[in-house]
Amino acid sequence: MKLPALKTPAKDITEISRRELLRSGAALATVALAPGVTLMAFGGTPAAAAPADPGRRWGLLIDVNRCASDCDACVRACSEENGWKLDGNPETDAQWIRKVDLKDRETGREVSLPVMCQHCENPPCVDVCPTGASMKRADGIVLVDKHVCIGCRYCMMACPFKARSFIHEPLEGQKSHAPRGKGTVESCTLCVHRVDEGGTPACVEACGRTGNGAMIFGDLNDPESEISRRLADYPSITLREDMRLNPGVHYSNL
């Protein structure tokens, strides 16, 4: 953004010249410790330069067969990454992601899987939000803009997946990339701060580290991405398909 031009936000985004502007503060995050040794403080990676790309649709594929029922690595990783935790009040503490155990009433088959915001293409939470705080980014990530959330909780009434939590108490010690505060609603951000820098959500990374490899993250619009190829080759479902919300989170072997 050119500093004096406050009134035209959207148009300025593609302007190259703005990047040539001397950026104060943030630009100096790279510090030379010694010749050849630099320290990157924040920002600065090439992917960060681009805004959310409408050509992409970020999604997850969760292979239920590979998800161990006694494993909650994804939940712990999310909690650690985003700074929420179960703090003795399970009814009111936030849970961005949770492990759900299922038992088929007819066949008795038992499975376990993580459930988080499903990042719907037609999200009911976005439809019902009176102020537009619930929003879907161009790349399909559904977020709460906590600057305009008034805490009415209508989105929590509307979400078919119980993906959202309301913050019931004053908080301290938030992560700098995951601001959260009393009186607003929140949910899984698909680790948008990582995705914007070309990274992968913390849950997917943690799942990979366990060796289970039950979660894949990628661009559903890119036919060459691993997630798209897997979806093309193997059967999968999304939750509550009857509602035609077209979630970005897919489950296979459920």
Partner: peptide
């Protein structure tokens, strides 16, 4: 927040840092 633009001039995080 809304467009995913991360390279901005005025970021609270940068101010604080």
């Amino acid at each position: 927040m809304r467009l995913g633009e991360r390279e901005i001039e005025a970021s609270l995080k940068a101010c604080v840092t």
